[in-house]
Amino acid sequence: MDTDFDETYVLLLLADSNLPTGSFVASSGFESYETHGFLSLPSTSNAGKGRAATAGTVAFIQDSLHTYARSALPFASDAHRAVDAFKNLKGEPDIGHDATIKKLLELDELYDTMTLNHVAKRASKAQGVALLTLYTKGFARPSGPSDEDHLSKSLTVLIDRLKLMVRGEETHGHLPMCWGVLTSVLGISLLRAQHLFLFLHARSLLSSAVRLNTIGPYSSQQLLLHSVRPLVEEEVSHNKDMHTGILMDMHHNDADNHPATTWPLGEILAVRHDLQHSRIFNS
């Protein structure tokens, strides 16, 4: 893609915690986990109280990453692959528009039918549409129509169409699909996009832990650099080749590389988020 900043620069932009993506109001079930008394389980509380809360926080991040990498990442990956394929149609990208949109909507719909959790769906939709808005309002080139190449114009139109469909409730606009689209349009490689997707999930869990005061701000940075780093790498390397089945064969149900939930306890606790007597997060 003909951009005047390189991939690293875009990565830095996307990793900015001040981006209006709504992730600061999502705890992805962590608040509920704490309220339900899971931070002090015997397996994590062989040390003092503070150590137990830190160990419990890391345990949550491990389990949450494990299931998110297996259930959501393949959708981000396939959306990225679909838009990459569209970009490869350099000659006549307009022909590919409808076919690409169709694939993205199928991905979005499958993610919705696989996410049996109205709290997670709510958060995912809010963050998904925020990403599309971020692109159209923040990342799309401000310049006049003349100095833009055909492909980047076409990609901007693609995202615009998608955003309108989400606004018109023709599709859900879930975060994984939108993430894959955004990162591919911005010219980020699939592997980088996958890595950043899981990194941001882990970092937003740590931010919510700081807000909930289960760990301190320095401890959060320390965990992010030392404990969480290998976890994110592990999950990326294990799940990077997963597919949803939408782009290829769908009806191969015994497939080892299709999305799945790996943490049913996390699902129960995340769904019960709204039942908390008092809460500060939206999920």
Binding site: S32, E34, T35, H36, G37, F38, S40, L41, R272, L275, Q276, H277
Partner: peptide, 8 residues
């Protein structure tokens, strides 16, 4: 209605 608990 869930109030904060010490154990699950």
């Amino acid at each position: 209605s869930i109030f904060k608990r010490a154990t699950p």
